[in-house]
């Protein structure tokens, strides 16, 4: 339920990244970063948060782009919107899991407003772009008073809604490594109704050579307080030929590895049941078996 009026706050509009970091340091704990606002303003409406200051990104240049750099990978600026993933042919071709996450994400209006970075910083286990990025691997670039640091996406989420970012740091860029000619990836999500948040989402990124899996990262959402990698299940896949029998074993392993709960969008039992099925489907989707 939304109150029609936002609570009172003050706005900070830094004109450079160092100025933004200085403002975050000065008002530590009292300031929230405002990107697209599709989470932040909703939380303000429902008074889930009541920051004294919102720090806008509008005055900051050079954070708008989604760039593919051959030999390095994908760079997503902190102000890049989800729609920009759909408009970029390199994302569709080289990072299908991320493209597919953007395709199912919210509504056209929200995709024009929401940033990819906001999805990662929000730290929700249901984040669709976040789920794809965890499978693809990568880093979050943070700028703080001591300069820049890179945090691996595997270590970035620490608890529900909590990330490695410190209060005086601004997230400036997402980096996703260059795929090889044998990299395949895919994303699937399940929802109650189309525009709802996921009740389960899954992404996979594999290195496949002659139907043998050489490396794999599997991420699943809505099965714990943060997005998780299914590392035991990954191990069962490495070095193996992908077959129906193996996919069955992986499905069973995924069911064991997750720790879902009952909530408003689904139940523990249901999530466990379908986790194995959607894992099989996402692997088949990635390798183009169906």
């Amino acid at each position: 339920m939304s109150s029609r009026v936002l609570p009172q706050f003050d706005l900070l509009t830094p004109q450079s990244i160092p100025e933004a970091v200085a403002m975050l340091a000065q008002h530590q704990g009292q300031v929230s970063v405002l990107a697209g606002g599709t989470d932040m303003l909703v939380w303000n409406y429902i008074r889930k948060v009541k920051p004294a200051y919102l720090l806008r990104l509008s005055g900051l240049d050079d954070l708008d782009n989604v760039n593919y750099i051959p030999g390095e990978g994908l760079r997503i600026g902190a102000k890049a919107k989800v729609v920009q993933l759909l408009d970029n042919p390199d994302v569709a071709e080289k990072f299908p899991a991320l493209f597919q996450a953007a395709e199912t994400f919210a509504t056209p209006q929200i995709r024009n407003m929401a940033t990819v970075m906001g999805n990662v910083l929000r730290g929700s286990p249901a984040g669709d772009c976040s789920c794809a990025i965890l499978a693809l691997g990568g880093q979050v670039v943070l700028q703080g008073p001591e300069g820049e640091r890179l945090v691996d996406i595997d270590d970035f989420w620490v608890a529900y809604g909590v990330t490695e970012r410190k209060d005086d740091e601004l997230a400036v860029e997402l980096r996703i490594p260059e795929p090889t000619s044998t990299t395949r990836s895919a994303f699937i999500r399940m929802t109650r109704v189309h525009e709802d948040l996921a009740k389960l989402n899954v992404a996979v990124c594999l290195e496949i050579n002659q139907n043998t899996c050489q490396q794999v990262r599997i991420s699943m959402g809505c099965v714990g307080p943060i997005l998780v990698r299914l590392k035991q299940t990954e191990k069962m896949l490495v070095g193996k030929q992908i077959s129906d029998g193996l996919l069955q074993q992986l499905a069973a392993s995924a069911q064991e590895e997750i720790a879902p709960i009952d909530d408003q969008r689904s139940t523990e039992e249901y999530r466990r049941q379908v986790a194995g099925v959607i894992l099989k489907r996402v692997i088949e989707k990635a390798i183009g078996a169906h």
Binding site: S2, L11, T38, Y45, T107, Q109, M113
Partner: peptide
């Protein structure tokens, strides 16, 4: 709805991009 879900508040920015005006600050 006031929370980005219904589209009733949709306006066009720069002739092309549709956004929800309920989740956009006026200053933005």
């Amino acid at each position: 709805c006031g929370t980005g879900e219904c589209g009733g508040c949709t306006v066009l920015m720069d002739g092309k991009d549709s956004i929800c005006s309920c989740l956009t600050l006026a200053v933005e």
